[in-house]
Amino acid sequence: MSKITQKDVERIAGLARIRFGDKEKEKMAAEIGAILGYIDKLKEVDTDGVEPISNITGMENVMRKDEPTKNQLAEQAAEAAKLIEMAPDNKDNFVKVKAVFGE
């Protein structure tokens, strides 16, 4: 199962949204194959009846009220402006992106 082909790498790279050159793909296939080969030792462990837990301290689904936590509206606006300013491209107080649909 741990044999990773160049095709596998291409499929995963597509899902992970990373562009790789041919040399990189080859290297990645070998390295991921070796790591998964090591990880295969988990098959030895009998885990029948073991319930996986999502948080090690046992907490689950921590909720809060869906309300703004900052009272000062001005402070929120300033924070929003900061965040938009951080975007590589912005226009009219919006984050600007390439066209999502084709022309």
Binding site: I4, I12, A16, I18, M28, I32, V45, V50, P52, I53
Partner: peptide
């Protein structure tokens, strides 16, 4: 490398064999 490994482990058909198995051994 880690993003690729993780994407693989979580991808359709491999989730049970890798991620779920690892979570159980973690317990």
């Amino acid at each position: 490398r880690r993003i690729m490994l993780g994407t693989y482990a979580l991808s359709a058909g491999y989730y049970d064999a890798y991620y779920l198995k690892a979570q159980k051994v973690r317990v």
